[in-house]
Design a protein around this nucleic acid. Structure first.
Length: 555
RNA sequence: UGGGGGAUCGUCUAAUGGCAGGACGGAUGACUCUGACUCAUCUAGUCUAGGUUCGAAUCCUAGUCCCCCAGCCA
């Protein structure tokens, strides 16, 4: 995979360094524990890079474990997409693919053990009643009337729960801890609930399912995880994590460490709301190129290397933060600039007729494929009397600092000739429909023997000797920096997708395959969409080039 | 109002009692057959108030602000 093997340090790595130095651990084992209830997104990528990156750099292992304890929300489709996405990101769990559901029998036995110790009981309060008994943030809860059942009765009831003798919601298994604990998580938390639904892996073998708090710590312990890295909202749960392990699992125990999840400006990270975007048809699917999902970013043209680099560079801390989306784009461009072959494409064509160029003549001109990479070589592109340039590269009355084509002005056509605008042709409505120009045959290849300079170089394609293409331009899905606040309808960007049907691209792009990436010179990075075919090319704009001219214009 | 966390340039993040540093962004300039890339220079920060100390982002005290927790979700 990847040759980069050392990520910047952070507070978690410091802890690991200390644990190694003190001899607490000889080897490091981490895990990435997704629930298969949705697609992975860029926020998960941070966690994946953290966990797998630590395993890589410390010569340890990182497990991929599906936290599949809630059959109502989980699906096989998600299990498959998650594995594909982790692999695509560049990580390999080797033999270490696990499912919490594989531990159900073991977990059940540990629950029985807890009951035998008198530290868990079967409670027949309804969900509502349990909530009432729990108390509030400032008031202690009160004991369930079922709290002091005998061990024998609890054992019997729990077994009957498993056998399916009780209805959903009628009984739960609860830990017996402290209903007046200041930490609400510790007020006799539910450990098992009855759900008479089949599980995507265990089928109908179970009708009771363990809760996250009971499952996660024990799964970590079963797998000999040394450092169990999770997000900040689980800080309160750490007390329970440790409590459960102390009661029923021999040392050594994994240590839970919490870090701040990724927030990205203009980006929705809530799985629930992402699902809503998909279900409501607001986007075309989990892999819509506007989605922050790994499958969406992949389709958009993002590279795994760029995402890994981003994850490394944003760092890891415990402070809530909001990373600028432009930083992700910076990492992306940095990677794409090195690796993307250049080509020319005209998004919004404006015809230029070169009046002194022989009619019917077509020349093949040599163009550099990637100035960042000499090994990428060169290609031939056809030049003819009629070409297209970008509409925005011509102005009738150019303001100061506009260096591109204008009446009477000379510019360079990239890898071709200098041309001078001699005339402008309008349609009946007064729109510019064609430019007339002359070229200087002496400037073939793009430089003038007399040493004269031009201020600007334009990209172009030959009118006939080019291909039509559909180009999809994307913008943020949301208009607000923090889309976790506000109603979806209010903050959706109506212009997040713009489709250009009449773009023209180089002839060389005839046989491109979905996923192929290019830099369209002077415009941006694009990749071939899966919808593309040889008769109907479709490109996604991955990210534009930095554009200091448009910035200047806005002033 | 209970408990658990957190506050360092506009943003992200280092500094573990000893020169507040890096990256992104922004500004200026150089270079340029991509107004890209690259390079150079600049910009800008320790939440507040006290205290300890030769010396405090770091330790102490008192505040302020922000986040999380009252699922039979994870």
């Amino acid at each position: 995979m990847d040759t980069k093997t050392n990520s910047p340090s952070n507070f978690i790595r410091n802890i690991i360094d200390e644990d190694l130095a003190s001899g607490k651990h000889k080897a490091i084992v981490t895990r990435f524990p997704p629930e298969p209830n949705g697609y992975l997104h860029i926020g998960h990528a941070k966690s994946i890079c953290l966990n797998f990156g630590i395993a890589r750099d410390y010569g340890g292992t990182c497990h991929l474990r599906f936290d599949d304890t809630n059959p109502e929300k989980e699906e096989i489709e998600y299990i498959e997409s998650i594995q594909e996405d982790v692999r695509w990101l560049g990580f390999d769990w080797g033999e270490h693919l696990y499912f919490a559901s594989d531990y159900f029998e073991q977990l059940y036995n540990l629950a029985v053990e807890l009951i035998k110790q008198g530290k868990a009981y079967v409670c027949e309060l309804s969900a509502d009643q349990i909530r009432q008994y729990r108390g509030t943030l400032t008031e202690p809860g009160k004991d369930s009337p079922y709290r002091n059942r005998s061990v024998e009765e609890n054992l019997d009831l729990f077994e009957r729960m498993r056998r399916g003798e009780f209805e959903e919601g009628s009984h739960v298994l609860r830990a017996k801890i402290d209903m007046s604990a200041a930490n609400i998580v510790m007020r006799d938390p539910t450990l098992y609930r009855i759900r008479k639904v089949s599980h995507h892996r265990t089928g109908d073998a179970w009708c009771i399912y363990p809760m996250y708090d009971f499952t996660h710590c024990l799964s970590d312990a079963i797998e000999s995880i040394t450092h169990s890295i999770c997000t900040l909202e689980f800080e309160n749960n750490r007390a329970l994590y440790e409590w459960i392990l102390e009661q029923v699992y021999p040392q050594p125990h994994p240590r839970q460490i919490e870090f701040a999840r990724l927030n990205l400006s203009y980006t929705m990270m809530s799985k629930r709301k992402l699902l809503e975007l998909v279900n409501e048809g607001i986007v075309k699917g989990w892999d819509d190129p506007r989605m922050p999902t790994l499958s969406g970013l992949r389709r958009r043209g993002y590279t795994p290397a760029a995402i890994r680099d981003f994850a490394d560079r944003i760092g890891v801390s415990k402070a809530n933060s909001m990373v600028d989306y432009s930083f992700l784009e910076h990492c992306l461009r940095e990677d794409l600039n090195q690796s993307s072959p250049r080509t020319m494409a005209v998004l919004r064509p404006l015809k230029v007729v070169i009046e002194n160029y022989p009619e019917g003549q077509v020349e093949q001109l040599e163009a550099v494929n990637n100035p960042q990479d000499p090994k990428a070589g060169t290609r031939l592109i056809p030049f003819a009397r009629e070409i297209y340039i970008e509409q925005e590269d011509f102005m009738m009355d150019p303001p100061k600092k506009f260096f591109r084509l204008a009446p009477g002005r000379e510019v360079r056509l990239r890898f071709a000739y200098f041309i001078t605008c001699t005339d402008v042709i309008y349609d009946a409505e007064g729109n510019i429909v064609e430019i007339r120009a002359t070229y200087d045959p002496e400037t073939k290849g793009g430089s003038a023997p007399d040493g004269r300079k031009v201020k600007s170089t334009l990209h172009w394609v030959a009118a006939e000797q080019s291909l039509q293409a559909e180009i999809r331009l994307y913008d943020h899905l949301f208009t607000t920096e923090d889309p976790s606040e506000g109603d979806l309808e209010d903050i959706l960007n109506p212009n997040s997708l713009e489709v250009l049907e009449g773009a023209r691209v180089e002839l060389n792009l005839q046989d491109v395959q979905p996923g192929d990436r290019f830099q369209f010179e002077r415009i941006g990075y694009f990749c071939v969409d899966p919808d593309s075919s040889p008769t109907h090319l479709v490109f996604n704009r991955t990210v534009s080039l930095r554009d200091t001219w448009s910035k200047l214009q806005q002033k």
